[in-house]
Each structure stands twice: as C-alpha cells, then as structure tokens.
Write a protein that binds this DNA or RNA. Structure first.
Lengths: 317, 317
DNA sequence: CCTATTAATGCTCATTTTGAGCATATATGG
DNA sequence: CCATATATGCTCAAAATGAGCATTAATAGG
C-alpha cells in the first residue's frame, strides 16, 4: 500500500466580534483578492495540525489563537488552481485542512499582515438583522428564477427549484440561517458568484454583490459561518468572542450579528438566565443615554454543572 | 511556499442498523485487531476524496456506499505508528480523512473482506438501553476515581474530577450520549483503554472491556458515533439506515440502538408524526404475536416542506 | 427641576411542546 | 374463548416559547 504524496495546507477562519458585524481576519495581498490566512503543514515540525496552525498564525499575525476547532478538509481537484503560485498538476495536489478560530473582541489587530473585515461584506445576503435584505428580493431571487427556467428539462427545473426553495426559503418557506454554505454553493452553481466565472476562466457574468476571495476561501468561510451559527445554539461558544465583562445588550448584539437576525430581547434574557452561563458583577456601565446596564461575566463553571446547552435565539418579529 | 508532502489515507466508518445493535463494517486481518476499511487517496486518480472513498469501498467490499459525510481529519504524529506496515518516521507522515457512511439494513455482507460488528462490542459502556450498564458502575467509575486520586497535585485532581464528571456524568450529573468521543478519550488518558498501553509500548494494564482496534480506529469510530448521535436529532439521517418500508416500532428500535437509551414510545410517535417524515402505506406486517403493525415509508419530500428537523428522542423512564 | 428620550429590567398570558401514564384495539397461541 | 403481546389512541400537568405591556433609571434639553 503506497500512498501518493499530497501537500497539506492549513487554513484558519479567525473570527472576532465587531461593532456592527462579526469580523474575519483576512490577508490582503496588493492587487489580489483577500485570502484567509494560509500556511503549510510541515510534518517534520508539527506534531499535530493544531500546533502547526497556532504556530504560524502566531508568526504571521503576532497573536495567539484561543478557541480552535477543525472545520473540514477540502481536497477537490482544481481548488488550488486559482492560487497563482502553483500549477494545477495532478502530481502536486494541495489539500487544505480548515480551522475555525474564535478570539475575543479585544484581540489586537495584527500589524502588517492581516486585517479585520465584516462577514457581510463577503456575504451581504446573509444579514437579515434589518429584515429581508433588498439584495435578496431584488437581485438574487429573480436571478435564481431565471436560472431555474434556463434548465433544459422539466426534471432539472424541478430539482433546481427545490434546491433554491430549501436554501433561500423561496415561496414563503422561511430562512434557515445555518444554510449559509448551501446558499453559497447554490449561487456558485448558478453562476452568480464571481469565483465561479473565474474558476471556469470565463468573463465575469452577472454576479451578486459581495467581495470575492482567493481560491475557495469564500467557500471555507461560508463553512465556518454555517458551523458557528449552528454551534452557538448548543454550545456556549459566543463567550469565546466576548471580553471579560459585558452587558446583556452587548451579548445580544453579538449573537444577532452571528445568526444574522434580530432577537426578542426579553425572551433572549430569560433563556440566557436559565442556562446559568452568566452572572452579574454588580458593576454598572455608564453608557451614552439611557439607563445604565449591569456588567455580566461568563461563568465557565456552568459548563460543568448543567448539560451544557448553548444560547437560545428567539427570533423577533 | 513549499508544502512538505504527506500521505493521505481515507477511512470509512460504514454503519448499518442491526437486529440488536447498530453495526459497523470492520476488516479483520487474521491475528490482528480489526480495523476500519482504509484506503490510500490517490490524487492522480481521484478528483475528490469522496470519489476515492466510494471507489475503493466498492472494490474492496463490493458494495455501493449511499449516504456519506466527512467526519474529521486525523493528523497527529504517532497515530499511524501502530499500523505495522509503516515506520513512524518524520518524513512519511500519514494523515487520514475519516468519513461516516450509512447504508440500509439490507446491505449485503461483503464477501471476503469485511464483516459487521456491533457498536457495543467496541464500546460496551455506551449501551444504556437496559439502564446504566454494570460495567460503568462496577468498573469504570471506581477506576476513574482511583485515577483522580492518583494525580499529584490538588489542581490536577480537580481537573481530572471535572472532566470525569462532565463526560461520564459522575455524581448524578446525567449521561449525555453525544459525548462518546470524549468518554473514549478520557478512558484513553486514564490508561483504561488497551490501545493506550499498546501505543506507549507498555504491557496492558487494567483495561475496560471492549474490543480493541488497529491504530486509532476506535477513536475514529467514537467520532462517528458522536456525530451520528448528534445529527440524528436535527437531520433525518436515520432513514438512510432503514429499508423501504418499516414499522414504527422498528424505527424506534433503530433509533434506540443509535442513541443508546430507550425511548418513550407514544411521545416518540407523536413527535415523529409532527415532522411529517413518514407516511403509512396502508399495508400491515403480520408479525409473530401481537397486533399487526402498519408499514410506513420515509417521505423524502418532507425535507423540502418543513424546516427539516431530525428525530426527537424522548427518553423513557 | 421638569420632561422627553433611551435603555435596561420586570411581568403576564396564551400557545406549544414535553414528559408520563392510562386505556383500547387487534393479532397469535393454546 | 382467554391470556398475552403488540400497536395505537388519549389525557393531563409541567415546562418552554412567543409576544407584548409596564416600570425603572439614566441623560439631554428647555
């Protein structure tokens, strides 16, 4: 049994909470599309993937990763081709192990290399905090309907329609925020993502607004968003993004940013309360205008006590 | 940027429903511990991991995989050492991409290579269908308490105790069936898994009952069990394990086998009913003794209609 | 210092969803 | 026909959820 060699890269989707929207760490090489931080995995130096990942993120961006979890391993042929450095040969396949990393808001901006960007600059259709985004009704839905009609056979039309209905909630079917990856892949299949044209070598056709990324990095990021949106509901991962102390409104804002819709304040608090994950510090935050809010802190011990659940996300409106 | 080459293997955890317990496909080489089906990933031949996986499972075991999903990529140094074929050198690191595959009960037993084994022959402590297994109270819990006390410092004892409490539900904390992987890893750390001694080169100490597997395959399998136990609750994956038609009791038996505890029959049915995932066929199954049960079928369309949920698992007793 | 404004908190109520258990229906095997 | 083993139906209290109204405590402006 001989195993043909393959090169392994490590990709990190490093996320932090931001003022207006969740942020992702990207490396912007001049003249090129922004990319996720990417580093080679060197088996001679790194005992595990995670050690490798932490080491070079530390080197490249000068900060320590905290919470880290493996996302997915991407190995499709052709995925590395768009990284101009390397020819898409059959011999040197590059696969990449994607990781999701969460850092507290306070995390220093790495000097030099990377910078923080809003999630929704890459995925504007995912932000429903102010209700259904215009881009969905005015651009994506019509484009998808055209794409459905373009299919050659009745069967294909049906299958396209089904897919669009499920992932984009067409025909009043309801938006499931966790399907972020499926939506990206559908838009890609429908040729509405600039990367799709680029990967085929075509001229860019009508593309949905949203910043392009190098290689398949936008897909990797969509995987990370889907994962985080799901996980936040059954594990207390939000707190990895919070500072030591925070107000409940602040916490709610962050959660809203992640799930992409707004929450019912009272019900959010009630559910949070039941989990026992937070405790008041007694200190108040003097804010601009309005009654001052109490500062809370995350009780790590709570994870031990209960059957650790996550954060409930009661939709508002 | 040069990426040092690494060999990539593909592991499949192929699962099927069984009479008494869920089954896993293992390859038993004579004189050696059973292993999960394993094959090399050849970038020259396979455009994607999944294509590679399907191809050689087809070759090796002569059957077609149906539902397949990627589990995790295992890359720790030393993990491949126990596979006697290959020296654990720094140059030839083998990483492996693990997949979970589900096949209907009816799946033919591959002639020659593999055979089906019960999950619980590898993880006897995970089967709570008849209540708390004796092996947990009589052997694991005492052994864990000894392991906690053996720690050198107070801090270490605390951290061991916390970990044991969370994953094994010590001190009346409740058993969370999804923590199968955590439990395996805890037992491994505590030296209670035969593989732990083997990997260190020690003589086997007191080990918890349960069949040993080659390399880190038991860990991979625990990963698969954890994933499936979690997923069954929010995606209709059980139906990938069912024959065309089945009775509700049969479905319940299968779900109970997977989650590892027994369910409240009426509540299980009520919840199942609400999902709309199954429909009666009108046909009855003349069984041995007792009122005949109606045969049901899975409605794939249901996935489109609702916000696809999974199967609810209301505990009984 | 009185009032409008802005948030933070507190409470209520109807509806759904769970968790448990009791009751009835329809086979099979003496 | 009767005991037994299942399948299926129904009820009821408790808990969780979804919506909205009410009160409290600051700041900003007249």
């Amino acid at each position: 049994m001989s195993l043909p060699p393959v090169a392994v890269g490590l990709n990190a989707v490093v996320m932090a909470a931001g003022e207006e929207a969740p942020q992702v760490l990207v490396v912007s090489r001049k003249g090129e599309s922004p990319a996720l931080p990417f580093g080679p995995f060197d088996p001679a130096r790194h005992r595990t993937f995670e050690i490798g990942l932490r080491e070079w993120v530390n080197e490249q961006a000068r900060f320590q990763l905290g919470y880290v979890e493996q996302l997915y391993t991407f190995g499709d042929q052709g995925r590395e081709a768009p990284l101009a450095d390397l020819p898409a040969s059959d011999e040197a396949r590059i696969i990449s192990v994607g990781y999701l990393a969460l850092t507290p808001e306070a995390a220093e901006l790495p000097s030099g290399g990377g910078d923080w960007q809003s999630w929704y600059s890459f995925f504007p259709w995912e932000d429903w905090r102010q209700g259904k985004p215009a881009i969905v009704s005015e651009m994506i839905e019509p484009a998808l309907r055209r794409w459905i009609d373009e299919a050659e056979t009745e069967g294909r039309r049906d299958s396209r329609r089904d897919r669009a209905r499920i992932v984009f909630g067409l025909d009043g079917r309801g938006w499931n925020e966790e399907r972020c990856l499926d939506r990206y892949e559908l838009l890609y299949s429908a040729g509405l993502i600039a990367e799709a044209a680029r990967d085929r070598g075509d001229a860019p056709p009508e593309a949905v607004p949203g910043r392009t990324m190098a290689s398949d990095h936008r897909r990797i990021m969509a995987t990370a968003i889907s994962r985080l949106r799901g996980k936040i509901k059954y594990r207390p991962v939000v707190f990895e993004l919070m500072p030591e102390t925070f107000t409940l409104s602040h916490l709610q804002k962050i959660v809203e940013g992640i799930v992409g819709f707004s929450l019912h304040k009272q019900n959010f608090r009630r559910a949070l309360d039941r989990t026992g994950f937070v405790e008041g510090t007694g200190k108040m935050l003097a804010q601009t205008g309005g009654r001052p809010a109490e500062l809370f802190r995350y009780r790590r011990e709570a994870l031990r006590e209960a059957q650790a659940a996550g954060i409930s996300t009661p939709r508002s409106k």
